[in-house]
């Protein structure tokens, strides 16, 4: 019984720590807070656990994060909140999903208006979408739909040469 209680406590603590790492935002303007300030390139990836191509490309984004390290700051923006359900439970589910997928780049749980996000990122609502900005917030590249790992790596190398 004690073992079970300890195990349960561990699960609860592991679960809540996963959710704690996933910051909830309601304003698209908060996305910029999640970028590593020193990074030369800033990558926003809008996704959801229910979006098949989004999930398929996560390993590619993780690999890109591993390859470029501190030069490139990746921030995922989860839209899972768009499906009506208990908000805290959904956020927990997304956090656990990220842990399962061993995603180390930053992620945000977006619970604001979809219109506001679409306007801020200038996209039409179709996910995934991946956008690369420079340090000053100037858009350099975007891909609507699933990224191609090799093409994106080549593109980032090119962009880094121009934006060291």
């Amino acid at each position: 019984m004690r073992t079970f209680a300890l195990f349960a406590a561990f699960c609860l603590s592991a679960g809540s720590s996963a959710a704690a790492k996933l910051v909830e935002i309601k304003e698209p303007a908060r996305i910029v807070d999640a970028f590593a300030p020193a990074a030369s390139l800033r990558v926003v990836n809008v996704w959801a656990t229910w979006c098949v191509p989004c999930v398929e490309e996560m390993s590619d984004l993780r690999a890109i994060g591993d390859i470029f390290g501190t030069q490139v700051s990746i921030v995922g923006v989860s839209l899972d909140d768009m499906i009506p359900a208990d908000r805290a439970a959904t956020r927990q589910k997304v956090a656990e999903f990220l842990d399962q997928k061993r995603i180390s780049y930053s992620n945000l749980y977006y619970s604001g208006k979809s219109d506001a996000l679409a306007d801020a990122l200038r996209f039409n609502g179709e996910i995934p979408i991946t956008i690369i900005y420079d340090r000053r917030g100037r858009e350099l590249w975007r891909r609507q739909g699933k990224i191609d790992r090799q093409n994106t790596i080549a593109e980032i190398k090119k962009l880094l040469r121009r934006n060291p």
Binding site: A29, V32, D33, R122, G137, Q144
Partner: peptide, 17 residues
């Protein structure tokens, strides 16, 4: 920072409609 992200729409490439 807020100014930067608010400026993104102005700088972004127009979506293909």
């Amino acid at each position: 920072k807020k100014l930067l992200i608010l400026a993104l729409p102005l700088l972004a490439v127009a979506c293909v409609a």
